[in-house]
Amino acid sequence: MSPASNLFRAARPAFRARQFFFRPKQSSARFQSTASQPATESWGKRMWNSPVGLKTVHFWAPVMKWALVLAGVADFARPAEKLSLTQNAALTATGIIWTRWCLIIKPKNYLLAAVNFFLGVVGVVQCTRIVRFNMSQKKTLTDGVAEAVKS
């Protein structure tokens, strides 16, 4: 048997007894659904049972989408000539459209709206870098042609 399976077997009673994650705490309305819930529920149980909680796509989709934002931020270090305007324009449009959509759907998903907002911001920054680079290349090219015509 592997050490990991021994660890999981040893931890199983704690999870079954719900003593590890589901300790009652003070009530917080932050992750509560519109349905009334007892005030003695812990944060973990409320988050688990919430319509945008841990067991739903409303939670995991934004968590996974942060990888796109981090990849875009990592591309800030790349030279602008190596970036794709089409790809970054698509990321910008996706971020803008889905930010609005996340605030219209029910239940409202603020976590997904936040990640899409930052995806749009990263896309706008990258598109701006690419367009400025392309404009500087055109200016350099036209200046070189004008210089060649003069000589």
Results as ranks from 00 to 15, higher is better:
Lys106Leu: 12
Pro107Met: 06
Thr92Leu: 15
Ile104Arg: 14
Ala61Asn: 15
Gly44Asp: 12
Ala113Ile: 08
Gln126Leu: 12
Ala67His: 09
Ser2Phe: 07
Ala148His: 05
Thr40Glu: 09
Lys55Arg: 14
Val52Asp: 10
Arg78Thr: 13
Gln87Val: 15
Phe21Tyr: 04
Val57Leu: 13
Phe8Trp: 12
Thr94Trp: 10
Val69Ala: 03
Ser50Ala: 11
Leu7Asn: 07
Glu147Pro: 05
Val125Leu: 14
Ala93Gly: 08
Ser28Leu: 04
Val122Ile: 11
Arg100His: 07
Val69Lys: 01
Lys65Ser: 14
Leu7Cys: 04
Gly123Asp: 02
Gly123His: 05
Ile105Ala: 14
Phe8Arg: 13
Val115Ser: 04
His58Glu: 15
Ala71Glu: 08
Trp48Thr: 06
Leu119Glu: 12
Met64Asn: 08
Val115Leu: 07
Val149Lys: 12
Pro79Thr: 02
Asn116Glu: 14
Cys102Gly: 12
Phe22Arg: 11
Ser136Ala: 14
Cys127Gln: 05
Val121Leu: 12
Val69Tyr: 02
Ile96Glu: 05
Pro13Gln: 01
Leu103Asp: 03
Ala67Tyr: 09
Thr40Ser: 15
Asn88Ala: 07
Glu41Phe: 10
Val115Cys: 08
Arg23Trp: 04
Tyr110Asn: 08
Trp66Ser: 06
Ala114Pro: 00
Asn116Leu: 11
Phe118Lys: 00
Trp48Ile: 00
Leu103Ile: 01
Val125His: 06
Gln87Cys: 13
Ala113Arg: 03
Ile96Trp: 08
Phe20His: 07
Val122Glu: 11
Ile104His: 13
Gly120Val: 07
Val145Arg: 03
Lys82Gly: 10
Tyr110Asp: 04
Pro62Phe: 02
Phe15Ser: 10
Leu119Pro: 05
Gln32Ile: 06
Gln126Lys: 12
Leu68Ala: 04
Leu141Arg: 11
Glu81Gly: 01
Ala113Gly: 09
Phe21Arg: 09
Ala39Asn: 12
Val124His: 01
Val125Asn: 03
Arg78Glu: 09
Met47Val: 05
Lys138Ser: 12
Ala10Val: 11
Ala80Leu: 07
Thr142Leu: 07
Ala114Val: 01
Lys65Met: 11
Met1Trp: 02
Pro62Leu: 05
Trp101Asn: 05
Phe76Trp: 03
Pro107Cys: 06
Cys102Trp: 05
Ile96Gly: 07
Asp75Gln: 14
Phe21Pro: 04
Thr128His: 07
Ala67Trp: 11
Leu111Thr: 03
Ala148Arg: 13
Thr128Gln: 10
Pro24Ile: 00
Gly123Cys: 05
Ser136Pro: 02
Ser50Phe: 06
Trp101Leu: 08
Ile104Val: 13
Arg9Ala: 06
Val121Arg: 04
Lys150Phe: 00
Gly72Thr: 03
Gly123Thr: 03
Arg100Pro: 00
Lys108Ile: 09
Arg18Met: 04
Trp66Leu: 01
Gln26Leu: 03
Gln126Met: 14
Phe31Pro: 00
Arg12Phe: 15
Ile105Ser: 13
Ala35Glu: 07
Val122Cys: 07
Pro38Asn: 04
Phe117Gln: 10
Val121Tyr: 05
Phe59Gly: 06
Pro51Glu: 09
Cys102Ser: 11
Ala146Gln: 09
Arg100Val: 10
Ala80Asp: 09
Ala35Lys: 08
Phe20Lys: 06
Trp101Thr: 09
